[in-house]
Amino acid sequence: MTRSPIMDTIADLVFHSAIVLSLYFLFAGHNQPGGGFVGGLVAAAAVVVYYVAGGMDEVRDLSRFRPWTILGGGLVLASLAALVPLVAGDALLQSDYVEGDLPVLGHVKLTSTLLFDSGVYAVVVGLVLMVFEGLGDEPEAEDHT
């Protein structure tokens, strides 16, 4: 596949800003519009941009982790958020939050649901990567009809 440097640059730019946006959605989601699911979807959209620009190889190079691991890891995080409160004798998925003033960031409220939401985020990203893994390769090679 021939590649244009302009396209590359644009793709990089869009990709990185989209990832930042997706992380914003993830972290701000509890109080502003957003959340892990939407965040994950935006990150996935960023991956789509990369795919359009560079094909499957580019997508594969994006992350050190295999999509399989990201998918499973996301679910691990979410299940931890579900199961850990049980160890403490609380309800399944019981949430808690700490508030405090940190230097630089100012007033911060950290909710345990963020762990859960991160899991959701990872699963969504992982799923899209899995789909690309399954369907992303050019079909010509196998389409012998």
Partner: peptide, 24 residues
């Protein structure tokens, strides 16, 4: 809440997650 109730749902999901991570 009783953990007994939660485990049949959450534990296999967690186990599935780990099972994916350990992979092959």
């Amino acid at each position: 809440m009783s953990g007994l109730l939660a485990l049949p749902i959450a534990l296999p999901i967690g186990a599935a997650a780990v099972s994916i991570v350990v992979g092959r």
